[in-house]
């Protein structure tokens, strides 16, 4: 099996399992009363999963960010929150500040080269 063919199989598999979560979600949504305690519990699980994922993406990233120092990522994330709250919750400024901070921190460590 060539590498490209393998990759196509992986992409089909990934798309299938990813849609499976969404499709199953629609199916279950038809069976859970939005006013019920079950629904509140599912919402709690969703938000906990999302927050867990986000903090993992910042603290223990995979991909290219894995090579950056944790201190830089945490520092840039704190800076993001600080700018966000200081600018009365301006999302664009917060994200721009955090992105800029990470670029400068990692670039600075490399001696701006």
């Amino acid at each position: 099996m060539t590498a490209e063919y393998q990759l196509i199989v992986i992409l089909i598999g990934a798309a299938t399992v990813t849609y499976a979560w969404r499709g199953l979600g629609v199916y279950l949504a038809g069976r859970i009363d939005p006013e019920s305690a079950w629904f509140d519990w599912v919402a709690c699980v969703a938000y906990a999963l999302l927050a867990g994922l986000i903090s993992r993406l910042i603290l223990l990233p995979q991909g290219p960010l894995a090579q950056t120092p944790t201190a830089d990522r945490v520092g840039a994330a704190i800076f993001t929150l600080a700018i966000f709250y200081l600018t009365r919750r301006n999302l664009a400024l917060g994200v721009a500040a955090g992105t800029g901070a990470l670029i400068l921190l990692t670039w600075g460590r490399a001696g701006f080269s």
Binding site: L24, G25, A29, I32, V42, L49, L50
Partner: peptide, 10 residues
Amino acid sequence: NARLLPMTVV
């Protein structure tokens, strides 16, 4: 991607 299940239900 498991988060997509509860997100969809909600």
